[in-house]
């Protein structure tokens, strides 16, 4: 019995490694293709201000005032969608950007239509900085994350024209497609 289990485990590991390699390839390309200057123009200054400032009597104030500039959003979203078509594997490419100063938070700016992410909490506007994301932003290197069973994310830096790392893409895939994830 044991050799059979070992064989299954080996096959599963090999699949996960293959998915991780595929995602890493896409992430490498994404780092080149996603325009950080355009990304920096997506969230409106007004929306960002309200997210940071909040409202003393309205917990939804940041969400209700969340707004984006349509041109940069659409341009970037289409790039992410094209990146999600580079390979037939079941994966998505999401854009994350830091927000605020101290402590620095992070928020997903664009998600895509397979609705996969290892980090996004449904309905959350802004989240605490995720250590692996901080690592990408600080070291300018890709990081592979396997936090949830069956899901692999490769986080890759996004640069602007000054060479600054202004955000990151989460190239995230599932070993087994989930047709219902986040349809709620």
């Amino acid at each position: 019995m044991k050799p059979v289990l070992l064989l299954i485990a080996a096959v599963l590991c090999a699949r996960a490694d293959e998915l991780a390699r595929t995602l890493d390839d896409v992430a490498r390309i994404a780092s080149v293709m996603v325009d950080g200057d355009v990304c920096q123009r997506i969230v409106t200054a007004r929306a960002e201000g309200y997210i940071i400032k909040g409202h003393p009597r309205d917990k939804w104030f940041g969400s209700d005032n969340y707004d984006v500039n349509h041109g940069p959003y659409i341009q970037t979203k289409k790039t992410l969608m094209r990146l999600a078509r580079l390979n037939p594997a079941y994966y998505d490419v999401n854009l994350w950007m830091p927000i605020g100063e101290s402590p620095r938070k992070i928020h997903v700016v664009i998600r895509n239509d397979r609705e996969i992410s290892q980090f996004w909490t449904f309905g959350t506007l802004v989240q605490d900085m995720i250590p692996e994301m901080r690592e990408v932003l600080e070291t300018d290197k890709r990081v592979t994350v396997r936090q949830k069973p069956g899901i692999v994310s490769v986080l890759a830096p996004v640069h602007n024209s000054l060479g600054d790392v202004v955000g990151l893409v989460e190239v995230v895939g599932r070993e087994k497609p989930d047709a219902h994830e986040n349809v709620k």
């Binding site: 209700d64 984006v68 664009i110 895509n112 506007l125």
Partner: peptide, 18 residues
């Protein structure tokens, strides 16, 4: 809705003229 980060406009409970 924009806050769910899928699209650049609010289909539900629209708040912005654009």
């Amino acid at each position: 809705k924009k806050r769910y980060k899928g699209y650049p406009w609010d289909g539900d409970e629209t708040r912005f003229e654009a």
